[in-house]
């Protein structure tokens, strides 16, 4: 009905790497789980990602990165989000993320870190469980 708001999720790839198989699979899976996915795809700067999160008023931001630049780019995304006052979104990420980096990424505010072999079911459940409720 009219006032049942689906969860809105932003899926983006920061940086230059073009490997978007994972991002696409996740975007499609979340759509099939009834969510509205704002897909911005590849080559997004931290500023573009934060601005999209703001304008689209998403509850969730999922970032995919396979180039290894996560420790450089994720903090910049967080910074850009904060500078816009976007402080109430659920953050998760996926890609080639070395185990020893996970702690750092969690400290940044990411609630979920998903590596290769993750099922989309896990991600859907994660988003449903943690997405902030909006009036």
């Amino acid at each position: 009905m009219a006032n049942q708001r689906p969860i809105r999720v932003l899926i983006a790839k920061p940086g230059l790497d073009g490997h978007d198989r994972g991002a696409k699979v996740v975007a499609r899976a979340l759509r099939d789980a009834g969510m509205e996915v704002i897909y911005t795809g590849i080559r997004q700067t931290p500023g573009m990602i934060a601005e999209a999160a703001l304008q689209e008023d998403v509850q969730v931001v999922g970032l995919s990165i396979l180039s290894g630049a996560h420790l450089e780019l994720f903090p910049r995304v967080i910074e850009e989000l904060k500078s816009r006052g976007v402080d109430d979104v659920l953050l998760f990420c996926g890609g080639i993320i070395p185990h020893e980096d996970i702690g750092t990424i969690e400290t940044l505010g990411f609630k979920g870190v998903f590596g290769p072999g993750t099922t989309t079911t896990d991600i859907i459940e994660f988003v449903r469980a943690h997405a902030p409720v909006r009036a």
């Binding site: 940086g15 230059l16 290894g68 630049a69 450089e72 910049r76």
Partner: peptide, 21 residues
């Protein structure tokens, strides 16, 4: 990535990508 995308490493697009892959 910056090399693959034709950027020098001191251009803003290269930020964070040096030598990663």
């Amino acid at each position: 990535m910056p090399t693959l995308m034709g950027y020098d490493h001191d251009e803003p697009e290269a930020a964070g990508e040096f030598g990663r892959c």
